[in-house]
Design a protein around this nucleic acid. Sequence first.
DNA 1: TTGAAAGCGCTAACAA
DNA 2: TTGTTAGCGCTTTCAA
Lengths: 339, 339
Amino acid sequence: MPSIRKPPTMADVARMAGVSPMTVSRAFKRDTSVSQETREAVRRATEELGYVFDSTASNLRSQRTDFVAVTIPSINNANFADTVRALSDGLSDKGLQVLLGYTNYDVREEERLIEQLLRRKPEAIVVTGGKHTSRARKLLSNAGIPVIETWDLPEDPIGHVVGFSNALAVREMIDHFVTVGYRKVAFIGGDADRDTRGSDRRAGFITAMEDHGLDATRLIAAGPPPISMREGANAMGRLLEHFPDTEAVICVSDLSAFGALTECQRRGIAVPDQIAIGGFGDYEIGAICVPSLTTINAFAAEIGAKTAQLILDVLDGSLSDSAGVITIRPDLILRQTSR
Amino acid sequence: MPSIRKPPTMADVARMAGVSPMTVSRAFKRDTSVSQETREAVRRATEELGYVFDSTASNLRSQRTDFVAVTIPSINNANFADTVRALSDGLSDKGLQVLLGYTNYDVREEERLIEQLLRRKPEAIVVTGGKHTSRARKLLSNAGIPVIETWDLPEDPIGHVVGFSNALAVREMIDHFVTVGYRKVAFIGGDADRDTRGSDRRAGFITAMEDHGLDATRLIAAGPPPISMREGANAMGRLLEHFPDTEAVICVSDLSAFGALTECQRRGIAVPDQIAIGGFGDYEIGAICVPSLTTINAFAAEIGAKTAQLILDVLDGSLSDSAGVITIRPDLILRQTSR
DNA sequence: TTGAAAGCGCTAACAA
DNA sequence: TTGTTAGCGCTTTCAA
């Protein structure tokens, strides 16, 4: 019978256990000096009353929420999910809980989200990417908590950074493609301003191609993020029509790359013999599809794990909160869709 | 220069704006009667001081957190991500924020998570699945907030339900397979107790096959969830070795089904001519891979949207909090991997 | 190891 | 439209 009376408080538990509320409070924490019998009495009273600890009161009085706020562009992206999972796992041992929000790849939305999250008084905040509205930057700078930007190497970091250069990662793939003889190389995606990591990859493609003295104008738009497999397939269709002599194409992610691959299969175009394909992100699909996908591993889980460790170090004072940049080095993974 | 002074409170804003704290409080809400000039004065003072509203105090005093707690098995699953996104979108208009946690497909972990979430005093709690530890059931029943179980049709619901029968969904696919002439049908996955939806699908396979008078023992284990594409491929390998005359196979999800498909491609086995494949969940990959995948659309986003609407209705009193079951009807999607 | 007093920063309730 | 008072349920602080 769910009672309609108001729920029991710590004072009710204290009364039933025959101790003071302060003792009950202590009994709920580890590492506090409470006698074994008292602990047991409190446990019994808690059980009997169906008491549930009220974090909201604890949060206010102790000025601690044990939240770590996290923003990601999309909840439905295996790369970001890997980062959040590793981050969450790394924090949960220490009693910290991730408070997650997504921005839908929109810096205005990100600004709203950051404000909403900061009102919850998190212990630290992790954002994806290094491009923000000026108001969002100000909010983050003034929040008085550790700020970590990830999945990017911002020119002017707000606080800490755990990330990598999207442009350099793509350059590495191009260097390889040129080495093995591809000259007419195209790029799919990264045309939308909103997709900052995507445009960084596209910009990296252009400068790297130009540095090789190659034509960097085989650019196919895939529209605003998130770029689906279907959009990758459509873009590949356009590429094959506009630039039929293309020898290799780099896609903004493995998802669009897989879509592109399927479009070739539907059109009877041999991969990699007629056209090579490269992806980005090392999603599971790239490892298992036939032919398997050449891609770049950005170590999504490692980003999350290192971010968690950084937060724990800063919060427990073993690391000063002065800005530091942890650089991840993406790995080129050669598979069957390219030489 | 991030100051080391303690951050400003509403009282500081009130002083600077020349009003009472209560007026500042009102100015921060919509739909409260505050004069235009006062609002503007408060806004300026807020800006000037860099004041950030403190939800923790508000939460305690008003006994409202505007959190909706949500548990999902894994953060890295497109089906659950779709549900959470739709849920989150449906709630955010009304100022409700999702507080997300994942159980790693483990009811013990779910119990811990539920307790942790309830301490945050959410307005409602949404859980994935209908199987819980008895303590978790008790916690949910006594929480005094709306409880919604999703992605399942529990025998003994705790509160509300927005879900479907996993067993019946699989039965529908089998009925079709039998109609078009497949007799030797196998099932991959659902062997682990932990994967309750997976085992329901497997159980549905067995009873449906038996009802057709067919052999229901072509069962291939894929191990504990989450079942990856790779594990689906491995399971397909074992199926082809143990039961080489199998005519069709149903996989516990589209991910394992795609893995199974790739295994056939690697072995030069024609799909669907030599073996048909069915998946579950209508993931994007199934629509775009070649050949495209016959599957079951469980309407993940619709589950989230209907759950959001249900919560809003219950919270604003337009729907009584007596238990109700909203049944989703999964759709069989016939594509190229089967007749 | 335990307890008493005070207060975290808001907002419900009431009043003007 | 605005203000006053009190208090949400914990935990900090100090004391025993």
